[in-house]
Write a protein that binds this DNA or RNA. Structure first.
Length: 526
RNA sequence: CGCGGGGUAGAGCAGUUGGCAGCUCGUCGGGCUCAUAACCCGGAGGUCGUGGGUUCAAGUCCCUCCCCCGCAACCA
């Protein structure tokens, strides 16, 4: 397993506005999975990026009197800053305006055209002449242009199409042979029923109404539209080029996991596999199409004024708490929900009360009863053996859940270990044991099991809450380098008892999470 | 009859192959005092959307209907 590669990607959002917290779920989820794999010893490559091409970027830039690139630069910087606020550490950040990407897109387009997978035809649709835009029936508002409200007319435009229909049988067979390709399974059924079984249509892959994009190499009045341009980023980022692939590409491709939102599932499980197949490249192992984070019951959107931004929330409660909330509240298949009240409640109950307080009270007792020295455990009784088994089981269950992208389940599983440790304190009453000199060895056993249990918590929570995990380890083993300990911690989780006795814990335990006065904070935020 | 997902305690949610209805928050009561008024235990609170059916047994399988939410083809 060590040195085995693991390539994970996020979708690349459209560079039109600052991403809200729902837009960041891709990145937080992928970052968590990437960290988990790194901890297990995989050679991980984590790609994030942004799509800077397209009509909206061009239009918005024109409105501001700046170039599309200047506009995109600003959006990209903003997005990267938001990702930093929640500690997302990607290995690479691709922009569709990067030279190597544009070159590879052009080469791929040429190859597909040369072999007949792309052909020239006419695109017919509802056209708004003043806005110079085509609109789909579902985009129209009362049958009129959603931008200017004026009537639209049927119009034709020369365009290039991807021959998706040719690959329908192949795609259906691919799904059948790779049952784990799409997570969750309900999405696959949706795709099959909605798009594939009724007959796969060819896809329009160029536009001639815009110029901000990759020009079609042999017909430069057309530019490559979003699908081929944006989708191919996953491959071009690591060095795919129809002319010549790089060593890095040969090492990392195919991707092990594409993390995307459900809204773009279709393109990732239909168009993307067909593109790769047509180009003769291997398929990604899995596509995880996650649901959405709703504001309460509603879709988050700027026009509704119910947008929450990750960086602003992190300012208030810390990046780890934001990550925790996002990860634990997002179910696998149905939409999750976020409100400020719910976030603060989770912070207080799960993080401050259950986890933070457990660490704090255990360290305090270690100082009080053993002068801060981690005691050597005596022979474990049934209670302790049960605890040891639970710790090991928690590692297993977490691993299984994450293998299936059940992130919230994984986190709940880990939190259950923290709850069990809190209960263990009440079962053993260390303060009572401390009053009886004959119980001293058992008191040491109890504290050792608590401290070692906390070490498991630090390790298991490290992917979701990296800063918190380091903080726990700095308090547990203040003479050691926490980051280093985490890098080497995975093999030590196989047998309970990896925490060395005799070392001192910190003399000054610091709460991991401050309890938040919910009402005050909410009022201040009104 | 377009497709899909939902409807389980005041709120938010779990409920594998059908086997006494659970979790978190809130609420009420108790315990403890190591700890961040935190932690632990217990109570109250549910006709598991509706109406049928299969079964010794259904939230869980089958059928009817009602309500909510997505998607519906070029909509990042």
């Amino acid at each position: 397993m060590p040195s085995e590669k693991y390539y994970i990607t996020t979708a690349i959002p459209y560079a039109t506005q600052k991403p809200h917290i729902g837009n960041c779920y891709d990145h937080v989820a992928a970052d968590m999975l990437a960290r988990w794999k790194r901890m297990q010893g995989y050679d991980v490559w984590f790609l994030a990026g942004i799509d800077e091409h397209g009509e909206k970027v061009e239009t918005k830039a024109a409105q501001e009197g700046i170039t599309p690139q200047q506009f995109a630069d600003r959006i990209t910087a903003g997005m990267q800053s938001v990702l930093r606020s929640v500690d997302v550490q990607y290995d690479q950040f691709i922009r569709t305006t990067d030279d190597y990407h544009e070159a590879a897109v052009a080469a791929a387009f040429q190859k597909l055209y040369d072999q007949g997978d792309i052909y020239k035809s006419e695109y017919e649709g509802n056209y708004c002449t003043p806005c110079e835009s085509f609109w789909t029936p579902s985009q129209l508002v009362d049958g009129k242009c959603p931008d200017c409200g004026r009537p639209v007319a049927l119009a034709k435009e020369e365009a290039y199409f991807l021959r998706q229909s040719k690959y329908q049988a192949w795609l259906e067979q691919y799904y059948a042979e790779h049952p784990d390709f799409i997570v969750p399974i309900s999405r696959k059924n949706e795709m099959l029923n909605t798009f594939i079984k009724p007959g796969l249509q060819d896809l329009c892959v160029t536009r001639s109404t815009i110029t901000w994009g990759v020009p079609v190499p042999f017909d430069p009045k057309h530019v490559v539209y979003v699908w081929i341009d944006a989708l191919s980023n996953y491959a071009t980022a690591v060095g795919f080029n129809a002319a010549e692939n790089s060593d890095q590409y040969r090492k990392y491709w195919p991707a092990d996991l594409h993390v995307i939102g459900k809204d773009i599932c279709r393109f990732h499980v239909i168009t993307w596999p067909i593109l790769l197949h047509a180009l003769g490249e291997p398929q990604p192992k899995r596509v995880f199409a996650h649901p959405w984070l709703l504001f309460g019951q509603d879709k988050m959107s700027k026009s509704r004024g119910n947008v929450i931004y990750a960086d602003e929330l992190a300012e208030l409660i810390g990046g780890d708490a934001v990550r925790y909330y996002m990860l634990v509240e997002m179910p696998l298949a149905v939409d999750g929900s976020i409100t400020r009240e719910a976030v603060l409640e989770r912070c207080n109950s799960d993080l401050a009360n259950i986890l933070g307080n457990l660490v704090n009270r255990t360290l305090a007792m270690t100082n009080k009863y053993f002068g801060g020295v981690i005691p050597a455990p005596g022979a474990p009784a049934a209670l302790e053996l049960g605890l040891q088994a639970l710790a090991l089981e928690t590692v297993e269950r977490t691993a299984t859940a994450l293998e299936e992208c059940r992130i919230a389940d994984a986190i709940e599983t880990i939190l259950a270990l923290a709850k069990r440790l809190n209960k263990y304190i009440d079962e053993t009453l260390p303060w009572a044991l401390a009053k009886d000199e004959s119980k001293r060895e058992y008191l040491g056993t109890v504290l050792y099991h608590l401290l070692e249990g906390i070490r498991y918590l630090a390790a298991l929570f490290a992917p979701s809450m990296p800063a918190t995990a380091e903080s726990i380890l700095r308090q547990l083993q203040p003479t050691r380098d926490a980051a280093q300990t985490l890098r080497e911690i995975w093999p030590t989780l196989g047998v309970f008892g990896g925490l060395p006795s005799g070392e001192k814990v910190t003399e000054t335990p610091t709460p991991l999470f401050a309890r938040i006065d919910t009402e005050k904070v909410l009022q201040a935020n009104e």
